[in-house]
Amino acid sequence: MRKLLAVAVLAMAFLGIDGLAAEKYVVGVDAAFPPWTWVERGEYKGFDVEVMTRIAALLGFEIEIRDMPWETIVTALAQGKIDILMSGLSITCERMKVIDYSEPYWSVDQAILVREDSALNAITAMIGGRTVGAQSGTTGYMWLEDNLVAQGIGIKVRAYPTYEEAILDLERGRLDSVLCDTDTAQSYIDAGRRVKIVGIVKTGEQYAYAVTKGDPYRLLPKINAGLVQLYESGEWAELVQKYFPGRPVEKIPLKLSLVCR
């Protein structure tokens, strides 16, 4: 019996059921979404990682970053399995029903990517017969479904676990084009991937951080205040310069552009 008890204690220590330290929040990311979140030598890197780390330091809470498949991440947040979500998360009406957003902090559209040597243009990259890729569960994927597939345009849409794999497949010719958030698309080009942008779909999306519906830990006021503090102290402009050289700095917080019925 004593042996059994020892095993049970060991198992519990092992699983870390001993309770988390106070004020430590789990932040879910998709660690394959440059320049917002990625992993380099075992460490989380990216614009969102730096912003959230600084906000946490400013407002006195701790964060633990957890890499999860994008598919599961919004629902995990809705169910309270994670406390904060960041990874270039677009505000959408569907998501707004299940999670709460911070103030928007970034504006993006969707870029149409093709191979570097391709002769396709914005129109021919997405007409009937083409195979277009996007990460499963992203606004890019949903745009393809809603605006092309649902309109009866005979394209094949292929869902990928991450954009990394979609870009790989585009380079290797298994896809004709990829629809991807503009800044992420640009980061692939900057990293020397053999792809180019041939057009922009003006979706007018905005990024924000998100918390569980009802904000059970009162995190949104902190995140919003942190965003403004970073902007006013000039750190925000530094970060924008670091990750997006030459890009004009917009005033934080942005005005929410999305209108849901």
């Binding site: 598919e71 569907e94 299940v98 499963s136 994927y141």
Partner: peptide
Amino acid sequence: ARANIIASRNFRY
């Protein structure tokens, strides 16, 4: 894959 695509819209995974 089909289940994922449907659930990514209504979050009823």
